[in-house]
Design a protein around this nucleic acid. Structure first.
Lengths: 385, 385
DNA sequence: CGTTCATGGAGAAACGTATCTTCTCCGCTT
DNA sequence: AAGCGGAGAAGATACGTTTCTCCATGAACG
């Protein structure tokens, strides 16, 4: 039996079952070779339009669907992108960051689909069990902790990794983050303009980038302006602790006359605490919190919020990742050499390219003594990366 | 060159690049055959523990990761499950059902991961572009419309499909749904017990299962009890229309003294409308709405909600799907015959197996004149499917 | 008239795994 | 002594593509 015969007419022993048509079946039915079918369907090769359309028609008639697995094996591309939150364990999403994460994930999914990729939501834990069984073209990592072993291993094995949140020590292909410093400074300026004399901060105990950069920006501002820092911290993943911390902040002897809360529930918590202490908002206390929720448009009074624009972040992250996947990738040592002669490339030691995205301050009644309503984007500090 | 030599020592022309170690490399390094490596790592075959552990150690040292694509191609299993919402177009998730969908998707993701599968979120539209490029072992479909071509095609091509929401006409492997009729009847009973004389309904215009079954249950109840139906409909995906409809309902000459709203925002909308008309809740108007949000625990007054328990649904759907994938699958004509002799199987015409899950009524102040707080599960009507 | 070139297409080699089949020992039974 | 059976492991094939290489045929061209 020649190889050709083996190639075209097959399945000698097993009785032909009810199986999906393969490319061979299409080729046989159309009276052409496998190559021609592949080229015709993928728009490659040089074929007259007549052949192309005929093959397409036969394929359609046979209900032919190319095997994704075979294609992935051959091309090395699966069209799949991993999405993971590494900061907090277990559950794939975290309640605390839910609104942000949900929006971000939604935008990321849309952006990926728009470019022909699909997203797979994966937990940061359970490494090989799941991660190893999926062919991923790349991974989006949200807020990776320093030295994340998962990210390191992915990167080392050549999978492009783009992180949402400036990474600490783990190497990534690229990263995207908000300009948290500019955001905080913008808020502090805004509150100052609204007449705040002593601005307090409600922040978290964890060491993720967001918390750290925001708190540092606040402390630096205090230092420059000459205000004594007034802040309370609590574990951000614990909603109950947030309410307690809000209360603590307003119970201090050096009670602030304006507060910025870093986390989504801080707005309502601070509002409730203020009520308990008989403080009117905004008259006695100016309030701003970071949130993606629009319930703050309906509170009494409406609360000024900082939006991190998760949609924009998600879209940007995915586009960067897909660029890295499809472009001349700057992975560890993957060969580019066949097309381009070896040339100088920054070899791993240089910092990965980062992108800072502006935030948006949605000014509502809680942060202004006069009753104008405007939307202000904090100025980007031009010297930043 | 013998085939054996070809098998073990390869890559003659291309200079050995920085590539991931394959199973061949492990075999060579361990001095055994590919078969032995495969068996050792997968816990199959008959190998002495010594060989097994040695192979494992070599694999570890080489950083060997089996190729997911190759494994998928060989075994026909990818470990990937699709998740899609088909009801409303474009965006992968719909705002209206967001809380429900998010919870359900989260639970589904967890359940899948617990069994070694990962979830891929896919849009119902853009058929071949994306769906065709991913090897899916099965698909979860949320609320498929009647005659959904996507579902039909998936099912026809042998991919198990389990739907959240009883499907209309499309064939599915199995489905899961809440016992919407029991839920509505439970609410109507509860409201009646709280003193309601004329119960109104705020419902949707779309024809999905949830809306239809709930509305029918209401109308049937009215018919039995002898109450004239009092209801307003609006397109559920339009939040603004919801507020208007709530207002319409309370503006009617035959104004109800109790209302059940089928959709998440109805609670606040009805509360606002009641306020406009000077109606006190629960004194003048009893209120219940279907929602997964816990904001209704904090409204003034707190509003009784019906929870569809999306976590439970998501978990159940995924487990049913994976059972179908791994068990003796009842797909169209896929062979089971190699292991079991042909035998009588219900061949497609029988209705797919469905599971009804109970809902949970979280009773709060808005639906009771007396101020006790309890949680009541509506009784399941035993005669139902 | 011989050489190049473009066109249309076929052959066959991977991609990396799982698994069915076979082979070789070697100790044991009858 | 012959046969048997099981342990341990290797051979080889198939999974279904993509793609690199190569072949045939004419037409254009000098």
């Amino acid at each position: 039996m020649t190889a050709a015969a083996n190639q075209s007419g097959r399945r000698p022993t097993t009785s032909r079952r009810l199986e999906r048509a393969g490319i061979r079946d299409v080729a046989a039915a159309a009276g052409v070779s496998i190559t021609t079918v592949s080229d015709a369907l993928n728009g490659k090769g040089r074929l007259p339009d007549e052949t192309r359309s005929r093959v397409r028609e036969v394929a359609e008639r046979l209900g032919y669907r190319p095997s994704a697995a075979a294609r992935t094996l051959r091309t090395g591309r699966s069209g799949l992108i991993g999405l993971t939150v590494t900061t907090y364990g277990e559950e794939p999403f975290t309640f605390t960051e839910f609104a942000y994460f949900a929006e971000m994930a939604r935008a990321a999914t849309s952006a990926a689909l728009g470019r022909g990729y699909a997203l797979v939501v994966l937990p940061a834990s359970s490494r090989h069990d799941v991660w190893g069984n999926i062919a991923l073209d790349g991974t989006v990592v949200i807020d990776p902790p320093d030295q994340d072993p998962l990210v390191s291993e992915l990167y080392r094995s050549g999978v492009p990794v783009v992180s949402d949140g400036k990474p600490g020590n783990c190497p990534v292909t690229a990263w995207v983050d908000n300009d948290h410093e500019a955001a905080v400074l913008g808020i502090l300026d805004h509150l100052t303009e609204s007449g705040a004399r002593r601005i307090g901060l409600l922040t978290g105990t964890s060491t993720d980038t967001y918390t750290r950069l925001s708190t540092d920006a606040y402390l630096g501002w205090c230092d420059r302006v000459g205000q004594e820092p007034v802040y309370e911290t609590y574990p951000a993943h614990d909603p109950a602790a947030g309410a307690v911390a809000a209360d603590r902040l307003l119970a201090r002897p050096d009670r602030p006359d304006a507060v910025y809360g870093l986390f989504d529930p801080n707005g309502t918590d601070l509002l409730a605490a203020a009520r308990r202490y008989g403080l009117r908002v905004p008259d006695d206390l100016l309030l701003v919190c970071c949130s993606e929720s629009d319930v703050y448009a309906g509170t009494e009074p409406p609360i000024t919020t900082l939006s991190l624009k998760p949609r924009r972040i998600g879209t940007t992250v995915v586009n960067l990742l897909i660029d890295a996947i499809e472009g001349v990738d700057s992975g560890t040592g993957v060969d580019v050499g066949r097309l381009f002669p070896p040339r100088f490339r920054s070899a791993g030691t240089g910092p990965p390219p980062g992108t800072l995205m502006p935030t948006e301050l949605i000014v509502r009644a809680s942060s202004q003594r006069r009753s104008t309503r405007t939307t202000v984007s904090p100025p980007r500090s031009p010297g930043e990366v």
